[in-house]
Computed example of a mutant assay.
Amino acid sequence: MEQQALKGAPIPKPHICQLQIADVFASFAAGWRDFTRHSTMGLFFGAIYAVGGLFILAMLFYFQMPWMIIPVAIGFPLVGPFIAVGLYDISRRTFYGQPVTWRAVLAEVFRQRERQLSWMAFVVLFIFWIWIYQVRLLMALFLGFRIPSSLEGFAQVALQTPEGLAFLAIGTVVGGILATLLFSVTVISMPMLVEREVDFVTAMLTSMRTVMENPLPMLTFGIIVAGAAVVALVPLFLGLLIVLPVAGHATWHLYRRAVRFEE
């Protein structure tokens, strides 16, 4: 029956399983095993993410917008699930005992542009754009013309003025809502779309149902991933070399534990 999960097979109805906190840690353990088994590939995809972050950082300084570093650093992990497509395929191939080669994995990544996963890219980037837009809007509302041209000046205004503290408080709430929304629609849908030929709306609804029916385990997983990703940004994004691949592999294993298909 499991072989029906391979792409091109008929699509049975997804069934949401009850998860425990133990499933979260088991998924991370399985993700770590996949990373150590295919560490070169994991580091490759992690490097793409890290280099992308450094490029964005350089552009912010080039265009003299260092005050956007903090919101971009917070929002940057939101695009992680899309970057992790190759990692999902590595875990899928390992799970089914298929060969894990550079040619096979990269071919699968490029093949996604012809499948439903490409629509998910628009969803992810749209929510990321909303995050950046609302940060700029809140800055204009609370800080007005007091937005400094340096990171140090921005930190001083944000942390030492009533308007800055209000901006941080409301921005944190709005950002938390957007991050929770994006996590809910992508955490299961992304690995599902890599594994099965299913439309992206069905995948997103299945993902949201999984989070709603398993709020504590799923949010625990999300908090761990988000916390690790933020910490990984500190040493010039270098921590993402390990955090992204482990989180990507763990996400696929959590999906396998969370969703079963009625054959």
Results as ranks from 00 to 15, higher is better:
residue 213 E to H: 15
residue 213 E to K: 14
residue 213 E to Q: 15
residue 213 E to W: 08
residue 213 E to P: 00
residue 213 E to F: 04
residue 213 E to M: 11
residue 214 N to H: 02
residue 214 N to A: 09
residue 215 P to A: 07
residue 215 P to V: 08
residue 216 L to C: 00
residue 216 L to G: 05
residue 217 P to H: 04
residue 217 P to V: 00
residue 217 P to L: 11
residue 217 P to I: 11
residue 218 M to A: 14
residue 218 M to Y: 04
residue 218 M to C: 01
residue 218 M to H: 08
residue 219 L to P: 03
residue 219 L to I: 07
residue 220 T to K: 01
residue 220 T to Q: 03
residue 220 T to N: 09
residue 221 F to S: 06
residue 222 G to V: 04
residue 223 I to C: 06
residue 223 I to Q: 10
residue 223 I to E: 04
residue 224 I to W: 09
residue 225 V to P: 12
residue 226 A to M: 11
residue 226 A to V: 01
residue 227 G to A: 04
residue 227 G to I: 07
residue 228 A to V: 02
residue 228 A to R: 07
residue 228 A to E: 10
residue 228 A to M: 10
residue 229 A to M: 13
residue 229 A to T: 06
residue 229 A to P: 03
residue 229 A to C: 06
residue 229 A to R: 01
residue 230 V to G: 09
residue 230 V to T: 06
residue 231 V to F: 14
residue 231 V to L: 15
residue 232 A to G: 05
residue 232 A to H: 04
residue 233 L to K: 11
residue 233 L to Q: 14
residue 233 L to D: 00
residue 233 L to N: 13
residue 234 V to T: 03
residue 235 P to W: 13
residue 235 P to T: 10
residue 235 P to S: 10
residue 236 L to C: 08
residue 237 F to V: 12
residue 237 F to T: 06
residue 237 F to D: 11
residue 237 F to G: 03
residue 238 L to W: 14
residue 238 L to R: 07
residue 239 G to K: 15
residue 240 L to K: 01
residue 240 L to I: 01
residue 240 L to W: 15
residue 241 L to T: 03
residue 242 I to H: 03
residue 242 I to T: 09
residue 242 I to G: 07
residue 243 V to A: 13
residue 243 V to Q: 14
residue 244 L to I: 05
residue 244 L to K: 00
residue 245 P to M: 12
residue 245 P to V: 07
residue 245 P to T: 11
residue 246 V to P: 13
residue 246 V to D: 11
residue 247 A to D: 06
residue 247 A to N: 06
residue 248 G to L: 09
residue 248 G to P: 05
residue 249 H to A: 09
residue 249 H to E: 05
residue 249 H to Y: 12
residue 250 A to L: 07
residue 250 A to V: 01
residue 251 T to S: 12
residue 251 T to M: 13
residue 251 T to Y: 04
residue 251 T to H: 00
residue 252 W to K: 00
residue 252 W to N: 03
residue 252 W to E: 02
residue 252 W to R: 04
residue 253 H to N: 08
residue 254 L to K: 06
